[in-house]
Amino acid sequence: MNTIPRAPLVLGLLGLLPFVWGAATVLSPDLADWCIRTLGSRFVGPYVQLFYGAVILSFMSGVLWGFATKTQGAQAATGYALSVIPALWAFVMTGNGPEAAGLNLMVGFAGLLLLDFAFWRWGLAPVWWMHLRVLLTAVVLICLAIGIFA
């Protein structure tokens, strides 16, 4: 069964909103101006993407940690060690300005997809996991690229 269950799919897609919103405010100066006046500059362009991206990488560390609890011994130790990488990456690599931080988040999300694949291959993630993660990661990477390069 490779069909993504409705709840993870809907929640995953909703979780993309800050990335999509950030890209939209980069592409539309009028929307960015409205957002600055209404919500504040924290919710515009790459700023919302960078902050939220660091939060999501940290969240995904917790998800991978949960997968690691399904195993024992050396595989568990490896899983736990790998699971902290996205959070540490977000903490260490999101400084040095918005462009560098955005590029580093892109690398972080691409690396996370590799970790997702490893945990899925080990049978620790649901069978539908990679279908969801590829979809979400593709949208995140496109949105971050807009925030950096547009």
Rank of each mutant, 00 (worst) to 15 (best):
N2G: 05
T3N: 08
I4C: 02
I4D: 06
R6M: 09
A7M: 13
P8C: 03
V10W: 12
L11F: 11
L11P: 11
L11T: 06
G12P: 03
L13V: 12
L13K: 07
L14F: 10
L14H: 00
L16Y: 10
L17E: 05
L17W: 13
W21F: 13
G22P: 06
G22A: 03
A23E: 12
T25H: 02
P29N: 01
P29G: 09
C35S: 15
I36L: 07
R37E: 09
T38M: 01
L39D: 02
G40A: 08
V44K: 00
P46Q: 13
V48R: 00
Q49S: 06
Y52H: 11
Y52P: 07
A54S: 10
V55Y: 03
S58F: 06
S58D: 04
S61E: 03
S61V: 13
S61A: 12
W65A: 03
W65E: 05
G66L: 13
F67S: 08
T69N: 13
Q72D: 15
Q72M: 12
A74S: 13
Q75V: 11
G79K: 08
G79H: 11
G79I: 13
L82Y: 01
V84I: 09
W89N: 00
F91G: 02
M93V: 01
M93T: 04
T94W: 03
P98D: 12
A101Y: 08
A101M: 05
A101S: 05
G102I: 04
N104I: 15
L105C: 11
V107R: 08
V107F: 13
V107D: 07
G108W: 12
F109H: 14
A110C: 14
L113G: 07
L114T: 12
L115M: 04
D116Y: 09
D116I: 14
W120C: 05
R121M: 14
G123Q: 08
L124I: 02
V127E: 09
L132Q: 04
L132C: 06
L136S: 07
L136C: 01
L136D: 05
L141H: 03
I146N: 07
I148Y: 03
I148G: 08
F149I: 15
A150S: 04
